Computed example of a mutant assay.
Amino acid sequence: MSTTIRLLSYNVRSLRDDRQAVARVIRATAPDVVCLQEMPRFFRWRKHAARLARESGLVTVTGGAPSCGTMILSRLRVAVERAEDLTFPLTRGAHRRGLATAVLRLGRDTRLAVISCHLSLLAAERRAQGELLLRRLAAMDVPAGVVAGDINEPAGGPTFRRLAGALTDGWERAPAGGEFTYPAGAGRRRIDAVLCTEAVTVRSCGVPTAPAADDLVRASDHLPVLAELTV
Rank of each mutant, 00 (worst) to 15 (best):
Q20P: 05
G93W: 08
Q20Y: 08
A199Y: 13
P158L: 11
A227W: 02
C35D: 04
R41Q: 12
P208W: 05
A176Y: 11
F42C: 08
L52T: 01
R97Y: 08
H95V: 12
V146S: 00
A219K: 07
G156T: 15
A23S: 06
R189K: 12
G69V: 03
G57F: 10
T3G: 03
R162H: 15
Y10V: 00
V114E: 04
G165C: 09
L167I: 13
E172Q: 15
A128W: 11
A199R: 15
P158C: 12
L229R: 01
T29P: 02
D214E: 11
T201R: 14
V200W: 01
S116F: 06
G165M: 11
C68F: 05
S56E: 00
R135S: 08
A213K: 06
L122W: 06
L86M: 14
C205E: 06
P143F: 13
S74I: 00
P211I: 06
D192W: 09
R24G: 00
L133P: 03
T87N: 07
V78I: 14
T201V: 14
M39C: 14
R6N: 04
L112N: 04
S2I: 07
E84I: 07
G149I: 00
E172M: 13
I115T: 10
T230Q: 14
T110E: 07
A193K: 01
A79E: 15
A139E: 15
H222T: 04
T62R: 04
L58D: 03
A213N: 02
G145E: 09
L8R: 00
S116R: 04
L137M: 04
R162T: 14
L134D: 03
L132G: 13
D214M: 09
V225S: 07
H95K: 10
